[in-house]
């Protein structure tokens, strides 16, 4: 398999993630979109490590990245729970009140 093959995988995952971010009205689904984007970038880092024969470096980067990802998701989930306390559903359109 060539590096380009993995690039295509990453691009497809990234398109799915961005589409999800742009076209969803649900807070949780926005977080899921972010998660898919992070999956894409994890795959890219590992593929880069594989093809440049720097897998030890790539793996240690991915391990750190995964820890950061968890912390972000925990905090984001806390914020979603707080918002749910006020608006009783997870519709993102109600957030747009703030814009203007």
């Amino acid at each position: 398999m060539s590096f380009w093959f993995f690039c295509v995988c990453v691009i497809m995952l990234a398109v799915i993630g961005v589409y999800c971010l742009l076209y969803t009205y649900s807070l949780m689904r926005a977080l899921i979109g972010i998660e898919i984007l992070i999956k894409a970038v994890t795959l890219l880092i590992i593929a880069v490590g594989y093809f440049s024969q720097h897998l030890a470096l790539a793996q240690s980067l991915v391990i750190t990245l995964i820890v950061m990802e968890v912390v972000i998701m925990v905090v984001a989930a806390g914020i979603v729970l707080g918002l749910h306390h006020y608006q009783k559903d997870l519709d993102i359109r109600k957030l747009r009140e703030l814009k203007g």
């Binding site: 984001a76 914020i79 979603v80 707080g82 918002l83 006020y86 608006q87 957030l95 009140e97 703030l98």
Partner: peptide
């Protein structure tokens, strides 16, 4: 409420 919304957007 507003603070949580701002925080979520920032996230």
């Amino acid at each position: 409420r507003d603070a949580l919304e701002g925080a979520f957007k920032y996230v």
